[in-house]
Design a binder for these strands. Sequence first.
DNA 1: GTCTATACCCAGATAGAC
DNA 2: GTCTATCTGGGTATAGAC
Lengths: 204, 204
Amino acid sequence: MIAEHTAPNDSGNTRSRITEIADQLFYERGYEHTSFADIASAVNLSRGNFYYHFKTKDDILDAVIERRMHKTRGMLEGWETEAPTPAARVSRFIHMMVMNGPKIRQHGCPVGTLCAELSKLEHPAQPKASLLFTLFRDWLARQFVQMGYPRNADALAMHLLARSQGIATLANAFNDEGFIHQEVEQLLKWLHDISTSTPATGEC
Amino acid sequence: MIAEHTAPNDSGNTRSRITEIADQLFYERGYEHTSFADIASAVNLSRGNFYYHFKTKDDILDAVIERRMHKTRGMLEGWETEAPTPAARVSRFIHMMVMNGPKIRQHGCPVGTLCAELSKLEHPAQPKASLLFTLFRDWLARQFVQMGYPRNADALAMHLLARSQGIATLANAFNDEGFIHQEVEQLLKWLHDISTSTPATGEC
DNA sequence: GTCTATACCCAGATAGAC
DNA sequence: GTCTATCTGGGTATAGAC
């Protein structure tokens, strides 16, 4: 593990710049509809040079998914440390939809739309993309366990995830950000109810 | 309006056959990822002849959306006449997810995924595709009005639509049909609750 | 109405000079 | 590491014979 001579100029930076731009473009325009040329021009690279950093388009997708995994993990850890109670932490998740309201209205949920697209393409990376959902799912389930719902924590997590996805889909289809607020209110009420009521044996 | 000589052999049939196949392929593979060659070969037509029936790909999309509008209207009218109460009619809507479970698991909701894709493409037909949602939205709202919720019938309709979309998205992402059943149970309970309880002034 | 042939463009991907 | 030039394939779309 001696310092190798593999410390290229700023290829690491270039690579992450490409990944960052690709992440954004895949979200805004979709994976298939984003071309190498789109990404290259956004990063100010020639198409030829592009292939020095990524051999195939699938490689870029892989890097983008990994980047999203990393960012998501960081966000969840942040909520974990910032918010004192499980209910407050889940509330952070719900509020995320309000914070990202304008982008959701324009492009839907980054995770949901990517999974849907890769599913239609029968793309090999589809299972990997679904792991982004799993990240949220498991994190939410842990919160519900701490809230006193060990038996159906996963069902509650999936329920909340589904509600969020539906909100994003319709807010996007109808170009209606107000709908997000409207539904978030209901979700917060739902969260309040289950976090204050005594968990019944087979609740929810 | 005298009978014109525009009654070509079976071009009407060919056209509707193309539209039917395109409808299916757009659902299964997505709009952009479906090529003329895909459709033509599925209909057993040469690519050249294809253009006799549709000038551009957008024209096919238009025809597909109109076909879906037509079919949806027919389905909703069917539920309207078959089911005696508004609650029973909404229940038909909810059960549709169970009936289409396998396809939803594989390809998501036909309406939701089309709207999401067209949104990313910034395709001119996106608003037209959203009208498919509007069809369900208005129909559901009418049922909730009849159920005694004139004030927030539309909010209830949107809520139910969103729940359905979320269920479809996650069932697809996790390839999990059981999740549909699980959530449909909850939706039926929700429907039962609001259809039997006395509507409060600002309920739900 | 149906076909073959083909124009045209843009995508992903490669070669090789600098 | 970056560039230009280029290959190859597939996509939409057209022309014109039958």
